[in-house]
């Protein structure tokens, strides 16, 4: 069985503006070529009743996410968290982050890392 993950990313996706800073920050940090990377941003246009819609962006860690082990060892934030324009991403211990889910529209990722 895989090891229980200790660290993760808490994303307050209500504020994710779809700016792609996380995606490119990751590519820069880990020198990924275009088309690969540890986090990808997707756009979802949700259809709601009465011809209403909600525009949602979601950063999703991929199989390549290592939670920036090299950076966090030095006390730095992961590249995506550091640069997130909307400051809607947080890195930390999953148990601590879970306590910070104090509003709707948040997601806690435990990447493969």
């Amino acid at each position: 069985m895989a090891k229980k993950p200790e660290y993760g990313l808490l994303i307050d996706y209500e504020y994710c503006t779809g700016c792609f800073a996380c995606q490119v920050a990751c590519a820069q940090e880990h020198k990924w070529p275009a088309g690969m990377g540890g986090i990808r941003v997707i756009e979802i246009v949700e259809n709601l009743p009465n011809d209403k819609h909600y525009l949602k962006f979601m950063p999703i860690p991929t199989e390549l996410c290592v939670l920036c082990a090299g950076r966090t060892k030095k006390g730095e934030k992961p590249a995506c968290v550091h640069h997130c324009m909307a400051a809607c991403m947080k890195y930390g211990k999953i148990e601590e982050l879970a306590k910070e889910i104090n509003k709707p529209r948040m997601v806690l990722w435990a990447p493969r890392a």
Binding site: C19, F20, A21, Q23, V24, A25, Q28, H82, H83, M85
Partner: peptide, 20 residues
Amino acid sequence: IEGDPDHPMNRGRLCSRCLA
């Protein structure tokens, strides 16, 4: 290139264009 956490404008953040 990284966003400068001390800078009053962006406080560490940086957009995709600059990160490229």
